[in-house]
């Protein structure tokens, strides 16, 4: 009996963590859909969010309800600046070059954070109620539970905005065909900028949630590696894929961590990655572009 309970708890924790993967995955997909940039720095931007929160909450002594939106805002601003200064000059370059720019960006962020706050892991000030949460009999760490709720709300908001808002429509049009979007009068550069802003703001928010659970450190960007797996599994250009992929990776990591040991987490994730690449190279929901000669 207890075994089943344990399994249920592990799964719940996995789904909770998976929601954060999904959230970051959505941020990644947003950028990919709009600008076709594979942003390897997503994990570092997430990390930046965590440190920004720390800066506002611990450094300036702001309460959490003020520090969180400020951190998100910081992320958004950062995204806008990055898009304008690093991504736009690379327009028309090979996707691989742009990818490498994001690799460089990630490296710069890690260095900057380490310079500012040191290399040691830090804890974020507590801001989530810590009354234990039980689902049935299964215990769920309160932070994970609230993280899950927050992530789900943001994802839901995204999906709605994507479907129904003007910007969402413009974004989808741009994702479909940039040239056509231009010709019907959509301001494509603005869409680019918007996508980066929204995505980086989201990632920064996710960073606060992730940091509140596990603490923050300059190596927190490895979270981005798992997110990479999430979006590959789901398909780089599919929001739906990011959701499913996020939960799947969260679950697999939790199970591997609980039953095999913590060091097996990344192994399991990347095992899944290789498997998916061999079996369904463009992910569960991704579109495979046909090449022409």
């Amino acid at each position: 009996m207890t075994d089943w309970l344990f399994l249920a708890e592990v799964c719940l924790a996995g789904i909770g963590a998976g929601a954060l993967y999904a959230l970051t995955g959505v941020a990644f997909v947003l950028i990919y859909k709009a600008t076709r940039v594979v942003n390897l720095a997503i994990g570092e931007i997430l990390m930046l969010g965590g440190y920004a929160f720390l800066g506002f909450a611990a450094g300036w002594g702001l309460p959490a309800w003020a520090a969180l939106p400020l951190a998100v805002l910081c992320g958004g601003l950062f995204g806008a600046v990055v898009e304008r200064t690093l991504i736009r000059p690379m327009l028309g370059e090979s996707p691989i070059s742009v990818f490498m720019v994001t690799v460089g960006l990630g490296s710069m962020l890690v260095g900057a954070v380490e310079l500012g706050w040191g290399a040691d892991p830090l804890r974020l000030p507590e801001f989530v109620p810590n009354r234990p949460v039980f689902i049935g009999e299964a215990y769920l760490a309160p932070k994970v539970a609230y993280g899950f709720v927050a992530a789900s709300l943001v994802i839901a908001a995204f999906v709605l905005a994507f479907r129904f808002s003007r910007s969402g429509v413009a974004l989808r049009a741009t994702a479909g065909d940039q040239g056509a979007a231009y010709s019907v009068g959509i301001d494509v550069p603005r869409v680019f900028s918007l996508a980066w802003t929204a995505a980086c703001a989201t990632a920064a928010g996710a960073g606060v949630l992730v940091g509140s659970i596990g603490g923050i450190s300059p190596t927190m960007g490895v979270f981005g590696l798992s997110v990479l797996v999430v979006v590959i599994v789901g398909g780089l250009d599919s929001i739906m894929g990011a959701l499913v992929g996020g939960l799947l990776v969260g679950l697999i990591e939790a199970l591997a961590g609980a039953f095999l040991g913590g060091e097996y987490k990344l192994l399991a994730t990347f095992g899944l990655l290789i498997l998916i690449l061999m079996l369904r190279p463009y992910g569960l929901f991704g579109t495979h572009e046909i090449e022409r000669l």
């Binding site: 690799v103 460089g104 990630g106 710069m108 962020l109 260095g111 954070v113 380490e114 290399a119």
Partner: peptide, 14 residues
């Protein structure tokens, strides 16, 4: 030194 090096690597790539 270490973080500066990381930053410089990134900046050189970009």
């Amino acid at each position: 030194l270490a973080p500066i090096r990381t930053i410089v690597f990134g900046a050189l790539i970009v």
